[in-house]
Design a protein around this nucleic acid. Sequence first.
DNA 1: CTTTTTTAGTTAGCCGCCTAACTATCTGCT
DNA 2: AGCAGATAGTTAGGCGGCTAACTAAAAAAG
Lengths: 194, 194
Amino acid sequence: MPLLLLKDLPRYECLLEGAKVFPELDPSACEAYLHLLRAGDEVFSVTERNLAEHTISQGRFGVLMLLWNSTQRRTSTGHTVEPCRPAGPRTPAELADAAGVTRATMTGLIDTLERDGLVRREPDPDDRRMMSVRLTPKADAFVAALLPAHFQIMARLMAPLSETERKTLVALLTKILQSASELTATAPVLSASS
Amino acid sequence: MPLLLLKDLPRYECLLEGAKVFPELDPSACEAYLHLLRAGDEVFSVTERNLAEHTISQGRFGVLMLLWNSTQRRTSTGHTVEPCRPAGPRTPAELADAAGVTRATMTGLIDTLERDGLVRREPDPDDRRMMSVRLTPKADAFVAALLPAHFQIMARLMAPLSETERKTLVALLTKILQSASELTATAPVLSASS
DNA sequence: CTTTTTTAGTTAGCCGCCTAACTATCTGCT
DNA sequence: AGCAGATAGTTAGGCGGCTAACTAAAAAAG
């Protein structure tokens, strides 16, 4: 569970009440915001609990998936899967970038993965600053064993939504994501915007 | 930023491709899942960045809000606001419960808040095991100064959504939240479900 | 009235996230 | 050639999650 959040979201009347005191408070926006974080957190923790049973964290799992995705393209058993990304991430820097964490964080993740024998660091022959991170066979088996349950969890989480509702949800979330990106880009200091 | 996640979400064709290999993979469910976590994460980090400018974390802010919400009811300046919750949380245990974290975590949060002079621990006269946590005047001013910008951020994040879309979003998220709760309740061990 | 169980809070230690500072290497400029 | 700056990775230290183990006090059981 990544973040601390109210277990019981405030009732809508409370938001309306708050809006009388704070004119900046947009009740429906606030409600949507709180539900988004709450649902995201809950969904996250459900999958995290699943992964934890295989003694792996969400973060490490993400790294494994990135690497696994890369290897699939090369060692695929006759499938010749269309590459969905130009070239799978290999180095810690690429992995950090793809995962959206800092390089320092990636160092720590690779450390623990290597300690658990799921990953190997190999020096790059051309550039001695760089490392290449590879999955071990153990990791291949590990991921393959893990994924079915992981996908089932996702499917069950979204089970109450129809296909149309899912598309609607994705569309709405995409809009929010975009406005979040704009806020990030245009308002590094909040008071300097508006 | 609480969680590690793919910066670029996989294209839908990749999910379809993956579904050929893993029959458990429901592409639209997976897509919705990824978008939900991604959007939640992004939105979270936008507000976190705002709070960070006031040198406070999302977690500490949550505690302040819970306490502030309690005090509002008692010291409200003539407003006599309808209590939105039965009785505001006061003790570390109540705060932990309301915030959805463990007591150990709450101890840490209160520690740093107390260190920064935003909160005071007072022993309960009736039950010597218990503590009562109170906001300092400094915290009152702090929260009052912080909230307008915080509400503005929420409003801007949700700006691209119409009122109807916000209601739709909340309804969809509520469905997901419910299925997540059911998964949590009925499947403490994943393999024991289904 | 003692003993056991429950409860409140803290402590200790792990993990993953961050930033900032550091080392080593490569690249480019002159 | 040689040095300045960029780049890859790590290290160090902080924070906020967690679990598990502990202390002190209250409540329940006998």
